[in-house]
Design a binder for these strands. Structure first.
Lengths: 341, 341
DNA sequence: TTGAAAGCGTTACCAT
DNA sequence: ATGGTAACGCTTTCAA
């Protein structure tokens, strides 16, 4: 930026304050005469004055920026539907209200949580499902509003949370599979997600649901490479249905099984999680838990904006609430009755 | 933010400058004794001092933020592959170097170009294919580096540009279709894109390529609704091949044709543009021009970072160059010889 | 090796 | 109704 508010003031023969008031429309209990206002506007136009947003943010302590924090933001796209869904919901809430969306690498990958309160953002949507003690504490002590997604109730007291009903979801999955005749289930998850609270919660939810349905305890399949899946082609599979942590992982599983000559759903049934548009593009189309990610992100972001507004306006804070979202099961072609020997 | 650099200085019994130097590592020709440095670090730790990034940006005139500007940023996801591809390339270039990606609604939808130089961004990647005189001028006068995508050479003198070779691409499309036996082609485009320079360029490129190949001049199909496509089911289609402005539009076309009982590629061949992963998920799979969008976005962003660095370091400016990317044609199943009557 | 002080551009308070 | 002036938190030059 070159020309400042003072340049405009000088050219118009007024004070900087007068310019500020005219530019921003509303100045508390200050009025500028029509004539002066016009002169100021003309001077601003002639000098092509552009208010420095950064200086304004610095002064007002309000940036109009909201950050979204992921654990690991890789590629956007159809094989990785999750991030796109989240961002869609966030943008839908943010843009009509004039907020800017920031994807900050420091909060995205390395995970240096101290940066939450470094002044750049008016609020943060925390979408990382790894709730270490340190990060939870950091969030609770943040000086700006933070809203969490995927945190199971009780995980982060004092922080508003938007979370799927993983328990209910796994009950539906088990009901569906049991109804088809499956008995031996497995939970498939990647090396990364298995360490997250969300991964653990879903795994426990599946275990509990199976127990409740009178089925044997499911196995845990941690997929680091293709090794485990390769066995499916050689020996009789120990389980007849694989419940996957995410659609993305389910896509990987489908690809691997096809490569090893295992037919889905004839040899084994596969269930995903999220029911993103991706499920319609796989062969066979993927049965998946319908977690309304995009709606959840929209609602979480909208709530975040409410909290931001409360802080700015000095209003009383909304009570802290956890929102648990029901999940349906979208049955497609990747699940079928198990093969009878 | 609560605790400032001065709080730390006071606690450590030193000046604010000393703290700044210790925190930021390098202070030109200033040195702090080991003992004081340690005292400062301890004080900072005890007070949980977090430097205010906004104040720092304000002071140094460097924000570490890069904005991406789209004409109309709607949903991310598989039906709309373009934005995801761009953002992937941008993130890949930005994140390893610590830059933050901003999606700013003011530059995304309404298009108020004055905001380019409002101090918030170190640089801008301009992905809007509508090159109005006003916006081009605004870009040329920006006080921060701007890199353009999709601008045909000569469109914006003085601004580095990364653009696909639309002419070459359309030659390949025409060669392919002519080789299959097609003669009457049409260019399908949506109401929005037809007004953009990029839309016009592709339309002209197809026309020229057809003329060069000795084919009759293609028709222009502006798809506002399903009306035009509906006719395909009733009367003999005037053309046997539809070349679409984008994969997204081609997806829409495939859907409409299916609904109206028109078989692709038996009744009509369809060609997309971008060859995104989406092309593999349509039925039939979509033949499409392979525009390396993601690579282009990566290269453009990398160049933008170079320009930013030059400005900051006071280095001489790189010469302005336009990069034109070759496009291949990925032949899938949506193109075939025309039906013989 | 260190501290004091001057801003960066804006807005808000307190005088006229 | 209007203008001076003091911050916001930080970096950096200058003087000691």
């Amino acid at each position: 930026m070159r020309t400042t508010i003072r340049d405009v003031a000088e050219r118009a023969g007024v004070s900087a304050m007068a310019v500020s008031v005219v530019i921003n429309g509303a100045g508390q209990n200050v009025t500028i005469s029509q004539e002066k206002a016009e002169r100021i506007r003309r001077a601003a136009r002639e000098l092509r004055y552009q208010p420095n947003h950064l200086a304004r943010s610095f002064r007002t302590q309000k940036t109009g920026q909201v950050a979204v924090v992921f654990q690991h933001l890789g590629r956007l796209g159809q094989e990785h539907p999750y991030h796109s869904l989240i961002l869609n919901g966030v943008m839908e809430a943010l843009f009509p209200r004039g907020y800017t969306l920031s994807l900050c690498p420091r909060m995205v990958n390395a995970g240096e949580p101290g940066f939450i309160s470094d002044g750049r953002f008016d609020g943060v949507l925390w979408c990382r499902p790894d709730f270490t003690e340190a990060s939870v504490e950091e969030i609770q002590e943040a000086t700006i509003p933070v809203v969490m997604m995927h945190a199971p109730p009780g995980m982060a007291p004092g922080v508003p949370t938007f979370c799927a009903d993983n328990e209910g979801a796994m009950c539906r999955v088990v009901d569906h599979l049991k109804g088809l005749g499956h008995e031996r289930l497995a939970f498939a998850i990647d090396l990364w997600s298995v360490k997250t609270v969300e991964g653990q919660v879903r795994w426990k939810a599946l275990t509990d649901a199976a127990a409740q349905a009178g089925l044997p305890s499911p196995d845990l399949l941690i997929l680091g490479d293709h090794g485990i899946l390769a066995r499916y082609g050689e020996v009789a599979a120990p389980h007849t249905a694989l419940v996957c942590f995410s659609d993305e992982l389910a896509g990987f599983v489908l690809g691997s099984l096809e490569r090893f000559g295992v037919s889905v759903p004839r040899d084994v049934s596969v269930v995903g999680f999220d029911s993103s548009a991706f499920c319609d593009s796989t062969r066979p189309r993927l049965t998946s838990v319908n977690q309304p990610v995009e709606h959840m992100a929209f609602a979480a972001t909208t709530h975040l904006l409410t909290l931001i507004h409360e802080v700015e306006a000095g209003l009383p804070k909304s009570p802290v609430a956890s929102s648990i979202y029901d999940c349906g099961l979208d049955v497609r072609e990747s699940t079928a009755p198990p093969r009878t020997h």
